[in-house]
Simulated assay, not measured.
Amino acid sequence: MADRLPDTLGLLLRAARERLAAAGVADPALDARLIVEHFSGTTRTQAITDPERKADTSAIAAVDAALKRRGSGEPVHRILGYREFYGLRLSLSPETLEPRPDTETLVEALLPFAEAIAAREGECRILDLGTGTGAIALALLSAVPAAMATGVDMSEGALATAARNAAQLGLAARFTALRSDWFENVSGRYHVIAANPPYIRSEDIGNLQDEVRDFDPRLALDGGADGLSPYRIIAAEAARFLETEGKIAVEIGHAQHNEVSAIFAAAGYVSAGAFRDLGGNDRVIVFEGAKP
């Protein structure tokens, strides 16, 4: 049985850190701080300036339950129920992939183009395939006030989460959640088509980190036998929905640059740029239609 947690903020933080360290959590200090701050309603500043501050019984019970979940391997942001992405706080649900900093590379890759289109046309229409939490679409909407986005997903739970995030961020008027298997129910044309598709080979799912394999939805991970199935669908079907000078941006696995480029080249697209994440890995390719 775990030791009872202390009720003063400074000691509570220390006890939480020690419990997570004993459980083998990779960054016990950070996760302990996130959990204690969230469930006690306190800030880092308060922990430093007022370590004797008392946490109430219900907060201590919530911290205790959260530490047990984290110690058993559940990701800290799943426990908190949200994750920061591109400066936005996004709610998570079991049906959504947890958005990660690497995907901010895709937002950065598209942003100059989206801003230029909005300035020239007065609007920029964005299609976010496999929207999940709405991370990519909402990040672009937050940065480009004239943009409109449609977030597509097969999961009703994911779409409800994306719509809730749009509302919480004040972006609901410019965001539409659409249930569709890729382009099946999509209509209209878009200046930007963005996707962070599933790109893990089916046979490799079992080898992923426990926190990914056990808590991210398989639907958002499994890219088929070779991990490239979604790219084939996007390359084959996007042309009907892409404006003449539009761009397609896809996130890729770090070793998929050549294969994904070949798939789009065979469908008549040319690369308009490749981008690496903060770790120096190939992460995003932007495509446009071949010039006549």
Rank of each mutant, 00 (worst) to 15 (best):
D3K: 13
D3W: 11
D3R: 14
T8P: 02
T8C: 14
L11P: 01
L12V: 11
L12R: 11
A16S: 15
R17K: 15
L20N: 05
A21G: 06
V25Q: 10
D31F: 02
L34V: 08
E37M: 13
H38C: 08
G41L: 08
T43N: 03
D50Q: 13
P51D: 08
T57G: 02
S58E: 14
D64A: 09
A66P: 07
G71F: 04
S72A: 15
H77P: 01
I79D: 06
L80R: 09
G81S: 08
Y82C: 03
R83Y: 01
E84P: 00
F85D: 02
L88H: 09
L88P: 11
L90A: 07
L90F: 08
L92R: 01
S93P: 06
P94S: 01
P94W: 00
L97N: 03
R100G: 03
E104C: 08
V107E: 06
A109L: 04
A109I: 09
L111E: 02
E115K: 15
A116S: 13
A119L: 09
R120G: 02
E123F: 04
E123C: 03
R125Q: 11
I126K: 02
T131D: 06
T131Y: 02
I136L: 14
I136R: 02
L138H: 07
A139D: 06
D153W: 05
L159W: 01
T161A: 07
A166R: 07
A167K: 14
L171D: 09
A172Y: 04
A173V: 08
A173Q: 15
R174L: 04
T176W: 02
L178F: 07
S180Q: 09
D181H: 14
W182G: 02
W182F: 15
F183R: 11
F183G: 06
E184Q: 15
V192E: 05
I193Q: 00
R201F: 02
R201M: 13
S202Y: 01
D204I: 01
I205Y: 01
I205H: 02
L208D: 00
L208N: 01
L208Q: 03
E211P: 05
D214R: 15
D216M: 05
A220T: 03
G223I: 03
G223A: 05
R232L: 08
I233W: 00
E237D: 14
L242D: 03
T244F: 04
G246W: 01
I248R: 09
A249V: 07
A249S: 08
I252C: 08
G253V: 00
H254C: 10
H254W: 13
H254R: 11
A262L: 10
I263L: 12
F264T: 01
A265C: 09
A267H: 05
V270K: 12
S271H: 04
S271L: 07
G273Y: 02
G273E: 00
F275K: 05
F275W: 12
G279M: 10
G280Y: 10
G280V: 09
G280P: 05
R283Y: 04
